[in-house]
Amino acid sequence: MNKNMFSSEDSDDSIEDTDGVFIVIPAFNEEKTVGSIVEELVRRGYKVALVDDGSVDRTYEIIKKSKLKYPNNIFLLKHPINRGLGAALKTGMTFSLLKGAKYVVTFDADGQHAFEDIKNVCIPLKADDAQVVIGARPFEDMPTTKRFANNIMNLLTYLFYRTKVKDSQSGLRAFKANIIPKFNILSHGYGVSSEFIKEIHRNHLKLEEVSIKTIYTDETQNKGTNIFTGMKILFKMIINVLK
């Protein structure tokens, strides 16, 4: 058992069982935040599979250094070319399965998620209440344009995939390892978030949504779901229906 001994924040964390929990972090040019996030996760006892999606900044070098410190807990997967969020998640999840993960959690590299929420999204999986958990960000905290874009995406996800969710575009998700091979993910970019919902629906998987915190910084403001990515995702959804 790999009990977490290093936790500093709240006492609840110290009894968390992190055995078999793999954190998949897709990173594209995240040199400012990625190093501290990965090292903190390892200190908390998780295994981290970081996917560097063809970054042109120092993301790779930074994690390479962290890997020297924690060679058994950090895995560094480098895409030689940028292939988008969907492809990066696929690489990380496939790899975690090969390494014998029991639970796979996807986590954004920009520092918008709180570390304690990993435990929260894993609870329903470990209790067998769900096969997939999505961490729903509170929309009230979002800036207006983001909230609007995310609301539209929820509506589109509902219209196309007949599944109502609180937050279809969240980057914090947790999966039981045995269901991952059922996912047929074709999106390259941000469309992958809605595609997960579609696959959950198609495979009749038990989904639970857990409220999570969102930390808004300048970095987290610039990426993610805005009107343009929304339009792109809509176009892809239409094409996928026609295919």
Binding site: V51, L77, P80, R83, A87, K90, T91, F95, L186
Partner: peptide, 16 residues
């Protein structure tokens, strides 16, 4: 594009 993704995933996992 799907084929390229598969290759890139394979390469990343192989190297690691």
């Amino acid at each position: 594009n799907q084929d390229i993704n598969k290759l890139v995933t394979e390469i990343a996992i192989f190297n690691e």
